[in-house]
């Protein structure tokens, strides 16, 4: 686990342990922390693959500028994992080459 333990745990003000999924697998995270933080805490670094080359991508700037960490959250594509607070039961998916569709109405 990469989460800071003990006293430093207070560093995050996030709430209770909750469960969410990433690419169908179940993970634990803290309610209210950014999705990217919860995934990193679980050792998940690859958030998506580049649309053209298929190369893996993860957190880069951490503050919403670079759009590298975009994922699909509960069906909404292009969501920045570094800026979006985690909620119980969230379904997070990688965006992969050819899978970024915007066809559904």
């Amino acid at each position: 686990m990469l989460r800071i333990k003990g006293k430093d745990r207070e560093k995050g003000r996030e709430g209770d342990q909750i469960t969410f999924t990433f690419n169908g697998l179940s993970y634990q995270g803290l309610a209210g922390e950014p999705i990217a933080a919860a995934l990193l805490a679980n050792g998940v670094r690859t958030l998506r693959h580049h649309e053209k080359s298929g190369k893996p991508r993860g957190i880069y700037c951490g503050i919403g500028h670079c759009y590298e960490c975009r994922v699909t959250v509960d069906g909404v594509p292009g969501v920045r994992a570094c800026l979006t607070p985690l909620k119980e039961g969230m379904e997070v998916m990688s965006e992969r080459a050819g899978e970024v569709t915007s066809n559904e109405n």
Binding site: L2, R3, I4, K11, A37, I59, G62
Partner: peptide
């Protein structure tokens, strides 16, 4: 630098100091 695990120094600071999650071991 596009390999997951490479991030900006500022990102590492935010994740460690604000979210309490380390960029790596």
């Amino acid at each position: 630098w596009t390999i997951p695990g490479v991030m900006s120094a500022g990102a590492a600071q935010v994740f460690a100091n604000v979210h309490g999650v380390l960029p790596g071991r």
